[in-house]
Design a protein around this nucleic acid. Structure first.
Length: 806
DNA sequence: AGACTGGAATTAGTC
DNA sequence: CGGACTAATTCCAGT
């Protein structure tokens, strides 16, 4: 492979020297990681204190876009990647309203951020501001003493832009062709996301105090209309269209381009294959992406970025500075412009911040704080950590809050980041996927031609509809989200790809929000606020490129399942919007998997007596004549405790149906229901994700689980994706929330479920118990208890089919 | 000519 | 360190 790719010293600006530095720093980082992860964001807090106005804000406004300009040593905020969650929403001034403080809010006050809940004042500001936030209690030291491990010189602070930033093609190429896979893709800044249709000013309004400044800055950018694709149709929300604020980046280059320069040192088209990451990651179930080895410090193609930041990455620094934000390419302050201290702080902060996906939060226990208390989303969390308000919103907390009646109402000027869980329904509003996409869609690489739009199972394309609103056209946003058991968030390895062509009837625009491509379509009243998603393809980014991205903790290997995520912000007047979101069923995007991995879409029953013997029917795909169904049970430690192969009735099985006899459980004297799992195996390494099953004590036999009857079987009620089925995103296989199901009180299960379940798909509708329906893709949430524990601990999901221990 | 596809050869990562 | 495998990417070719 091209030499340039090897050491991450591509032609890019980044030099070897920088690499060295990074390496050293990297070590440091790792050390910290192990022991005191959150190193303090160092003086973040103090800085804040000392600096009333977040420096970053000021800088941001007045300085030129960082990206593309100063590759090296330009600290970049950690990319807002999956896993990097934004701070929880906080109550807005208006009752019942929440404001997202996507890394944009800075808590100022005594003791810096550590000020404690309610302590310091909170400022809202553009992503950049995030840098000044420093939850860390021991701020100063970090700044002064540490020569910037994260400091200016170190690129580490600002991980390369993600999203496209990660695109290797970008690297070094002016306007890499790959960035605009779809012709006419408009390069919108992530900020546009925040803008409200009716409030341009709001666009920058994140920071109340500096709002005016921001606006001014915005005006300077000369926001032209976005560059619509050739086929672009009128954008929704026009004339208020916030998007219109962001014109194409100068030079015709989109934000992505700039990112490319910095982030994509990767192979250029000429060098098709990027060097593999210097440090290989272990993809085994045990591996944790987050535990990047020092070796990784040496970046491959993305070398200029420098070592990855410590694990708890980046929170989306607010709108993530790391990603191209509105300011980013519109002349926003560059990272460089940010005071060193600030930058460092941010990076450190990022490091310190717990990630929702990280084990910590779900370490098997619910953090006493938010989750348990059901603290309001966004509510300040334990300050002890000093980063509470920056902490990722607890899925559970959010879930509870939502269930409890908190509304997904946001200020138009502070819309929720893409990684925020949002309900699919709010009052009369509901965003629903009327027609689900197929379970498989082979994504295309940048090196390939498009593989077309995602199709629907019944034929045609997915259809999304907004119920409860039909006043005026609205923008429907769509992005590719994750499909693992963790919070729904933008998928690091896949991006939505705008499909155009004569066969595409739906006009769409491409935008980039925090490094994530977002396809925007219009929901028209005349169409009943429904959209036929025939313009969305899926682009696969090379694992090596993304994994090298600073702050990225997810691994791409075997991480090939995605979900289409749809979101819409419904104006409520008075500068408020209700943001609802829904996600599709999981979609397997690899060629291989789609062809070989068995998939279980539904099954019935979901429980039976420990004596076994009952007939269990599975429906799904890729079942083979020699497919095996194996039941397993794992202990609290994740170790396999029991394994038994079921007897498959081959006569009543076919490629999409498996009929088998439930094996007898190992211990027929159990007094409580036993949670076990099963998977379909087409051979070693060709296993379906695990499915949940329960063995009931004999005495319980007559007392099936509350919703046992609700666990319908697709075939029984019609096609898997019949219109009358529950299309809400896949939910955990659990019949109900842990707390609602006595069966889950079993000691060894409660822990896992207590934190594992809620986070699964908090963003969509009410929990299963609230919306009984067929589980179409239980496997998605079908992680076993041990899996949940293991995955959470490891920080990343175990790929389907890998879980069952050999 | 270009967008889609379906397959499959190569190359890289794991065990 | 090499071999067997598996997964990821890149290539090809037909529609």
């Amino acid at each position: 492979m091209p030499a340039d790719r090897d050491l991450g010293a591509p032609a890019g600006p980044m030099g070897a020297a920088s690499c060295e530095d990074e390496e050293l720093e990297f070590k440091l980082v790792f050390g910290e990681e192990k022991e005191a992860p959150p190193l303090g964001a160092g003086g973040a807090g103090e800085e804040l204190d000392s600096e009333d106005t977040p420096p970053c804000c000021r800088l941001a406004l007045g300085e030129p876009p960082p990206y593309g300009a100063a590759p090296i040593g330009i600290p970049r905020p950690p990319p807002p990647r999956p896993g990097m969650h934004s701070p929880p929403p906080r109550p807005a001034p208006s009752p019942g309203t929440w404001e997202s403080q996507p890394a944009r809010s800075v808590r100022l006050g005594p003791g810096g951020s550590s000020g404690g809940a309610g302590g310091g004042r909170v400022l809202e500001c553009p992503s950049i501001r995030i840098t000044s936030i420093s939850p860390t209690p021991d701020p100063p030291a970090a700044l002064e003493d540490n020569p910037d491990p994260w400091g200016e010189g170190s690129p580490r602070d600002y991980p390369p832009p993600e999203g496209f930033g990660g695109y290797r093609e970008a690297g070094g190429q002016g306007g890499g062709p790959f960035f605009s896979p779809s012709p006419g893709s408009s390069s919108l800044s992530s900020w546009s996301f925040f803008s409200d249709a009716s409030d341009e000013a709001a666009l920058y309004a994140a920071c109340d105090e500096v709002e005016s400044e921001l606006n001014e800055a915005a005006s300077r950018f000369g926001l032209g209309s976005p560059l619509p694709s050739p086929r672009a149709s009128p954008r929704p929300w026009t004339p208020d269209d916030p998007w219109s604020l962001y014109g194409p980046s100068p030079g015709g280059r989109g934000p992505e381009d700039s990112w490319l320069l910095l982030s994509a040192p990767g192979p250029t088209p000429a060098s098709p294959r990027p060097a593999s990451p210097c440090g290989k990651r272990r993809y085994s179930s045990s591996g944790t992406p987050s535990s990047a080895s020092p070796a990784l410090s040496r970046r491959g193609s993305l070398g200029e970025e420098g070592p990855e930041p410590p694990p708890p990455p980046p929170l989306p620094l607010v709108r993530d500075p790391g990603s191209p934000g509105p300011f980013d390419y519109v002349g926003a302050p560059s990272a460089e412009s940010i005071p060193q201290k600030t930058r460092r702080t941010s990076s450190e902060q990022a490091v310190a911040l717990p990630r929702s996906e990280e084990p910590a939060p779900c370490n098997g226990k619910l953090p006493s704080g938010a989750e348990e208390a059901g603290a309001p989303p966004g509510g300040p969390r334990k300050e002890a950590a000093g980063m509470d308000y920056l902490a990722v919103p607890s899925p559970l907390a959010w879930s509870k809050a939502r269930i409890g009646g908190h509304s997904p109402i946001f200020r138009t000027s502070a819309l929720p980041p893409l990684d925020w869980p949002l309900p699919s329904q709010y009052e009369q509003l509901e965003l629903r996927i009327e027609v689900q996409p197929r379970a498989h869609h082979r994504a295309h690489y940048e090196t390939e031609g498009s593989r077309g739009a995602v199709k629907a199972a019944p034929g045609g394309h997915p259809v999304v509809k907004l119920l409860g609103y039909s006043e005026k056209p609205l923008t429907l946003q769509m992005f590719i989200g994750t499909a693992d058991e963790r919070n729904l968030r933008p998928h690091a390895f896949y991006q939505v790809h705008r499909i155009t062509g004569k066969m595409v009837a739906t006009a769409s625009y491409e935008a980039v929000v925090s490094g994530t491509k977002v396809l925007e379509m219009t929901l028209l009243p005349e169409n009943n606020m429904a959209a036929n998603i025939d313009c969305a393809g899926i682009l696969k980014l090379r694992n090596s490129d993304i994994e090298l991205r600073k702050g990225e903790t997810d691994i791409g290997r075997k991480n090939t399942r995605v979900r289409l995520v749809f979101r819409v912000h419904v104006p409520q007047g008075s500068g408020k919007v209700v943001s609802v979101q829904t996600a599709s069923v999981p979609i397997e995007c690899s060629q291989r998997s789609a062809q070989e991995l068995p998939q279980v879409e539904a099954y019935s029953p979901s429980a039976c007596s420990v004596r076994g013997g009952e007939e269990l029917v599975l429906t799904g795909s890729n079942f083979l004549p020699d497919s095996k169904v194996v039941f397993i049970e794992r202990g609290p430690d994740g170790k396999l405790q029991w394994e038994e192969e079921a007897t498959v009735n081959r006569l009543q099985s076919n490629e999409v149906t498996l009929t088998l006899a439930v094996p007898e459980y190992s211990n027929k004297r159990v007094s409580r229901p036993v949670q076990v799992y099963f998977y379909v195996s087409n051979g070693r390494r060709k296993r379906s994700p695990t499915q949940s099953f329960k063995f009931l004590p004999v005495i319980f036999k007559e007392e099936p689980l509350p919703d046992a009857s609700l666990r319908g079987f697709p075939s029984a009620s019609g096609p898997p994706f019949g219109s009358d089925m529950d299309f809400s995103p896949p939910r955990p296989p659990y019949p109900s929330y842990p707390h609602e199901d006595p069966a889950y009180e079993t000691p060894y299960l409660s822990e896992g479920f207590s934190y594992g379940t809620p986070p699964l798909y908090p963003q969509t509708g009410p929990p299963p118990s609230y919306r009984p329906g067929l589980r179409m893709f239980p496997e998605t949430g079908g992680a076993t208890v041990s899996e949940i524990i293991g995955r959470d601990l490891s920080g990343f999901p175990a790929p389907p089919g890998e879980e069952p221990p050999a």
